[in-house]
Design a protein around this nucleic acid. Structure first.
Lengths: 147, 147
DNA sequence: GGCACATTATCAAAGCTTTGATAACCATCA
DNA sequence: TGATGGTTATCAAAGCTTTGATAATGTGCC
């Protein structure tokens, strides 16, 4: 087609991401979590009381998608949603103790994956990869707005 | 948690991939395609007559997922599935002319995104990114098998 | 020829993801 | 006070994705 497959960097990015997702799945499964659930719990542990919409943004999904994930997490008692003290159309979301335990278990194993990535590269290479990916991100965003 | 978020390279990879998917969606929408459909059509154009299972592997999804994508594509007349000449539990999958036209339209725009990525980096940087991502991939796979 | 293995296609179920849409709430401004 | 704009939560619909499972087909070996 318009550009040979082996010139498309998008494929390399996708491949790495797929490997990452597959690994994360194996890692978090003993905690009974899916990868999106784990991501939500992790973001929540960093920002207790955050709103569902903000959590969605942190996890790079739409609010509607996050509603579904949270519903399942809430049903299992891993998170609780309570009305905001003064902002009445906002729900504050928090980890329960059960949620914290599940997250701890999952993250222990997920971090093994992250550590393996970090160990594969030197500090300079890590910075370089980060920079290159960020520049791709910018280029992608720019090109999209001009489509 | 076990590792600060800003040390997790997985996030950088995910961010780039999300940007890429969002861009691809905008690109392929005028052709009436979703990103998974576009990916399937693109892989098909490279390998006419491929089996559903092989196509799934090329697109980095399970055969079951690909069955769903192909069913929708077939219903819209973009692909056709026919029995293999001598391998009776295999279906050969091919682009129809309608499928080719849709793919052409979609790919024209998707390539703009890919070109923008390639233009952002020098040839050395492209090779470097590719190498770094591949090494991450290997590290991920290795760590997963040891979980 | 029978068996074991590998691969294919697809059903079922559950979870996730997007877009489109709606209603409600808050803050700001005229 | 009413209008406007921004944000939140969530319903609906369609598509996609995984795991688990089953049946069928081909290949190679004893």
């Amino acid at each position: 087609m318009g550009m040979p497959a082996d010139e498309r960097l998008g494929l390399d990015i996708k491949r790495a991401e797929q490997a990452l997702i597959a690994a994360k799945q194996v890692a978090v499964r003993p905690a009974g979590l899916t990868v999106p659930q784990y991501a939500a719990l992790l973001a929540l542990s960093d920002s207790p009381g955050i709103s569902g919409a903000a959590l969605a943004r942190a996890c790079l999904v739409t609010p509607q998608a996050m509603t579904v994930v949270l519903k399942n997490l809430e049903e299992r008692g891993l998170v609780e949603r309570s009305p905001h003290p003064w902002h009445r159309n906002v729900l504050e979301i928090r980890l329960t103790e059960t949620g914290q335990a599940a997250l701890r278990l999952a993250d222990e194993r997920a971090v093994v994956i992250e550590r393996a990535i970090a160990a594969e590269l030197s500090p300079e290479e890590r910075d370089l990869l980060r920079d290159l990916l960020a520049r791709c991100n910018e280029a992608i965003t720019r090109a999209t707005s001009e489509l």
